[in-house]
């Protein structure tokens, strides 16, 4: 197999559909979606949308993850959120017909369905249930943005912010050793680099490196490539005050 996941070209037969924010649509809308989308697989590091670029269309993320980041006038990048399968990328630009507000880069090998801007606008106009799904995703994205604003404005220490991030990722573990292991271990897949983690929590890469080193030294986490194990969840929880 050329890719590390099966390619799903037919939205009507997609078995993940019901669990996805956008794709769980009535049959009529799915048939239309199938006719207007182009499926592709992108390697890790592909820029799907570029901040400032005119909106060409939207991408529906089928498999894989993508980071959504923006850059200040000083050239500093901040990660706004990580997109999960089922999300539509490039939405605000497509809806308001303005340049992309953020850069979207794949964090791993990713399957995405591209829908051109005119086709997406017509799809939205012709199928009210599509609007409902888009509204649901936008309310979620707004909530993420406000959470990020609150987090950046808080006087929380960097270890606290990193602990919070790790605990958030631990909600979707690769593996959980179960309560029989004392203390229980949670394995997570981390596709972000230290620099990207820094962009997420608003600090320097050096600080992230120092904090992670400290967590490792204390035996709270173990890092082996992209697989991280949280070996003392309680200790991380104790760091988080909000």
């Amino acid at each position: 197999m050329a890719y590390n996941f099966p390619i799903i070209e037919d939205c009507l037969r997609c078995t993940f559909r019901e669990n996805r924010v956008f794709c769980d649509l009535p049959r009529e809308a799915l048939v239309r979606l199938q006719s207007i989308k182009a499926t592709s697989v992108y390697p890790k590091g592909t820029m799907l949308c570029l901040e400032g670029q005119a909106p060409r269309g939207v991408y529906v993320l089928c498999t894989g993850k993508a980071k959504i980041s923006t850059t200040s006038s000083e050239g500093k990048s901040i990660i706004l959120r990580i997109a999960e399968p089922g999300e539509v990328l490039g939405l605000t630009a497509a809806i308001s017909n303005t340049p992309y507000e953020a850069t979207v880069e794949t964090l791993e090998q990713t399957q995405a369905n591209f829908i051109s801007h005119p086709d997406f606008v017509r799809f939205l106009q012709d199928h009210p249930e599509v609007g409902m799904k888009v509204a649901k995703q936008l309310t979620h994205n707004c909530q993420c943005a406000y959470t990020e604003i609150r987090s950046l404005g808080l006087s929380n220490s960097v270890p606290e912010k990193i602990a919070k991030l790790l605990l958030g990722w631990a909600k979707n573990p690769l593996q959980y050793s179960g309560p029989q292991t004392k203390p229980p271990e949670i394995s997570i897949r981390v596709t972000l680099t230290q620099e990207e983690i820094a962009q997420f929590v608003g600090t320097s890469r050096e600080t992230v490196s120092r904090v992670l080193g400290d967590f490792k030294k204390k035996g709270w986490i173990r890092i082996k490539g992209a697989t991280w194990s949280i070996t003392n969840k309680r200790a991380l929880e104790n760091l988080v005050t909000t």
């Binding site: 923006t70 200040s72 500093k76 901040i78 706004l80 303005t98 943005a145 600090t203 600080t207």
Partner: peptide
């Protein structure tokens, strides 16, 4: 959402990134 993201973009300029 655009306004919130724009605020975050401005805020990034003041961070030690």
């Amino acid at each position: 959402l655009r306004k919130a993201d724009s605020f975050l973009r401005q805020k990034a300029g003041n961070l030690p990134l």
